[in-house]
Design a protein around this nucleic acid. Structure first.
Lengths: 350, 350
DNA sequence: ATTAGCACTCTTGTTAAGTGAGTGCTAACA
DNA sequence: TGTTAGCACTCACTTAACAAGAGTGCTAAT
């Protein structure tokens, strides 16, 4: 059962108005503001129909109408118009992102900052998931006679290291041998692959001293790999939501803040989301009802995929926000294209 | 002008009551609850005197009294009694901290979590400032013919690295030479020393190829050193404050949250504070009036000093919180004593 | 020096009335 | 048949008035 042209116009008008003012919108006010050529009474009739179809709600008998999640969904799918960013906004984004271009994590964080500044909402950015990152080499470096550094380097330049303190001293020879041994065994394999498979156990070691050292290093190796898999999450502008009327009650605000105190949970949730620009509205989010979430993905060197996102009330300028995010992620992906690595220092990937 | 014994008793009673109930306390109620052997009228007189001296305030004529910052200061300095932790609390702390004992940053974060769980306040923990950390060695590792990894290792096992992408290819020889060269030059110097002095400029390089490579590497070296100096800040339980009556208004809550959104500012402020257990109350904090702050320091290997802290309203159980923090920091310092490093994997210092 | 008594103050909670925005329905109209 | 004007009705919100309660400050008696 499709909506008539006029119903769509009215619905759009209500959404626009409500997104702007956060107050239930009545028939009179949209008759006045938007020139639809019909009287309030007609609009009332249409609104009544729209309500029956589930696009509008009624806080109470004598209040105006409020768009439902379903209405926003319709809006996002069909009605929404992309907004062209102003030159000023584009310049702002370009400047701010290029300022920290050579520090990977800093750039990601700045993207989140920018996003919350421009949208006045809460935002986040995550470094890429590195499941598919391949191991380039593994190095063991001596510190003192019982301490050594384990270093895993990924093909994209991603590095993770940890300091190990052994129970027994090691020899330089054993260290070098094990370094090479491990590199040969794991080079070119993805982190996921190495962690999930039983490769780790399988590799035999023929030499006695090496086997002992290996036994000591292996648990740390696994832990370091896991650490390497962790994405970094940056959240910005969380306090912006305090300015929104929907969070003017302490309880609402608390609920919101508590959601994001669980960083690990949140990270997992966000990793599950599909690539590209994804909008989920209200009930479509299993937790976080009465929030909307917009996420988008950027690429590093065309392969690794990171996410940025915006969180706010369902009443949100979907058109604007998605446009901004599209521009921003394109910009990021461009920055992180390997060939464009102009300079002498590229990254500091976590 | 000293306070009489009875005035102290009354003041203490008022503080106890107010800390508990967060409501102005009247003469009648303390006459009833605390057996001071005097009538409400007498207490009223004393309260009047205490107010004149600045220890109490009056929200309005017919309300009870509220302790002033000055009163809390007196309380903390003279009246406060240390609380002995219950066996349960001690066990909890021991268990939780030892669970992640071999991962430095995780332990720090858990300490903050614990602190906010036990106190029901907001808390933070910082990794040690590494200004005085000495450089152990510097290593340059090849990735591909234009990419290399710069790695700085501190004497305490602290590692920082960054990935460099050069404009021109390098040779393995030049790399090795520069590694050695830099290690020789900076070994044993503190990070601060290296960064602040002009040592970096001073070191001449006699060989042509080396000089070129060096020129490319140096800016990254400085940036990496700076990165190494950064302390990590973990904040926990920020949402706890929503449960306190003093933050029941959105504005107050927002102000509070915004303070801690500025992590860099906050970190700097906290680093300025003296070592040991430090309590600052209300106005004593330049920003964050009407908050109290308690910080304490823990030691790593007896040298490096990190901080943990609790932030809450001035109405706070000072005795309890300081006791908990004392126990916690002792425990942490004990964990981080080098000799107690029992096992094969010690750290992952940032 | 202490205390009982009492007037006074100020907050909080409740009730009642008034206001205004907005709906829903009906009847008239094109 | 779709549109519109008119009107009664609903409900949240505001304001004022009032009562209750907690607490002080002062005075006079002990």
């Amino acid at each position: 059962m499709d909506l008539s042209e006029r119903q769509l116009q009215i619905l759009q008008a209500i959404i626009n108005d409500y997104v702007e003012n956060a107050e239930p919108v009545g028939s009179r006010s949209i008759a006045k503001k938007y020139d639809l050529g019909v009287s309030p009474a007609t609009i009332r009739n249409e609104m009544s129909d729209l309500e029956e179809m589930g696009y509008l709600t009624h806080p109470h008998t004598s209040a105006g109408r409020v768009p439902s999640d379903k209405a926003y969904r319709l809006y996002v799918n069909n009605l929404m118009k992309k907004k062209n960013l102003s030159a000023r906004e584009k310049r702002l984004i370009n400047e701010r992102l290029s300022a920290s271009r050579d520090e990977f994590d800093a750039t990601i964080r700045h993207a989140a900052e920018l996003l919350s500044e421009i949208t006045h909402l809460a935002s986040f950015a995550m470094t890429p998931a590195t499941n598919e990152e391949k191991i380039s080499f593994i190095r063991l470096l001596p510190v003192d006679d019982r301490t050594l550094i384990l270093m895993i380097v990924g093909e994209s330049g991603n590095i993770t290291n940890s300091t190990l303190r052994l129970k027994v001293p090691y020899t330089q020879d054993a260290l070098d041998l094990l370094s090479k041994n491990m590199t040969v065994n794991y080079k070119g394999r993805t982190l996921d692959d190495v962690l999930k498979s039983h490769i780790i156990e399988d590799v035999g070691s023929d030499i006695e001293a090496l086997a002992a050292l290996r036994g000591n290093v292996m648990p740390s190796f696994i832990r370091t790999l896991e650490d390497m898999l962790n994405v970094n999450l940056y959240m910005e502008g969380m306090t912006n939501i305090f300015n929104l009327p929907e969070y003017s009650s302490i309880d609402r605000a608390r609920d919101f803040m508590e959601l994001f105190a669980r960083k690990d949970w949140f990270t997992r949730k966000m990793l599950e989301r599909a690539d590209g620009v994804v909008v989920t509205i209200g009930d479509e989010n299993d937790a976080m009802k009465d929030c909307s979430l917009i996420t988008a993905t950027y690429h590093v060197d065309g392969k690794l995929v990171g996410k940025i996102g915006v969180i706010g009330p369902t009443r949100m300028k979907y058109g604007e926000v998605t446009s901004i995010m599209e521009f921003l992620t394109n910009n990021l992906s461009e920055s992180f294209r390997l060939t464009s690595g102009n300079d002498d220092d590229d990254s500091k990937r976590k």
